[in-house]
Amino acid sequence: MAETYVSGVAGRYAKALFELARDAGVIDAVKADLDRFGALLAESDDLKRLVRSPVFSSDEQEKAIAAILDKVGIGGLAGNFFKTVAANRRLFTVESIIRGFEALAAAEKGEVVAEVTVAQPLSDAHAATLKETLDTLTGKNVQLAIEVDPSLLGGLKVKVGSKLVDASLKTKLNSIRTAMKEVR
């Protein structure tokens, strides 16, 4: 297996969590808990504010995270990990930690993660077509991590490893705007 690199503070946390999960044989369970927390974060502006705002003390973040984890049933290694991250004032990196863990887990299984950003949610048929295309292009089993960003206006951005394909309407309009400025 080729080495998968994750960097920065979030990368160190992701790698530590991954190694603990691998040693305990619970990679899939931890990934499921991380995915659930990521979905909660995507849905709740209040949770985003708690995670990202430096206004909250580590004690306040730790208590709030513990209550949220208890309510949604995230415990074990992932639950303890989130509490540790909150206690260490690193909760703002949790989204990057989740992405890093997913990349390490995918590499362990021989998969690759494609970060896809779209203007509107993809239908199941479109997601399947995109996955098939990326599987063919990369020669690997591609897992899609889809994020919705309405500011793209249309099209999509796909990042696989260090390669980025930006076919968003926003980027194309900016290119036209730049070209029009050069004409003047």
Rank of each mutant, 00 (worst) to 15 (best):
L34P: 04
D35R: 12
R36H: 03
F37P: 02
G38W: 01
L41Y: 11
E43G: 06
S44Q: 10
S44N: 11
D46A: 01
D46V: 00
L47N: 02
R49D: 09
R52P: 03
P54G: 08
P54C: 11
F56Q: 05
F56L: 00
S57Y: 00
S57K: 10
D59K: 14
Q61T: 08
K63L: 10
K63D: 14
A64R: 13
A64N: 12
A64D: 04
A67S: 14
I68A: 09
D70H: 11
D70L: 02
V72L: 08
V72Y: 11
G73S: 07
I74L: 02
G75W: 02
G76W: 04
G76L: 07
L77I: 13
L77M: 11
N80S: 14
F82D: 12
F82S: 09
A87C: 07
N88H: 15
N88G: 13
R89I: 05
R89P: 06
R89H: 12
E95D: 15
E95N: 13
S96G: 15
S96I: 00
I97L: 14
G100F: 09
F101K: 15
F101C: 12
E102R: 13
E108Q: 15
E115F: 06
V116L: 06
T117E: 12
A119P: 10
Q120L: 14
Q120N: 15
Q120M: 14
P121F: 10
L122H: 13
L122T: 04
L122Y: 09
D124V: 06
A125G: 04
H126N: 09
A127M: 05
A127Q: 12
A127G: 12
L134N: 02
D135V: 01
L137G: 07
L137K: 00
L137N: 10
T138L: 05
T138S: 12
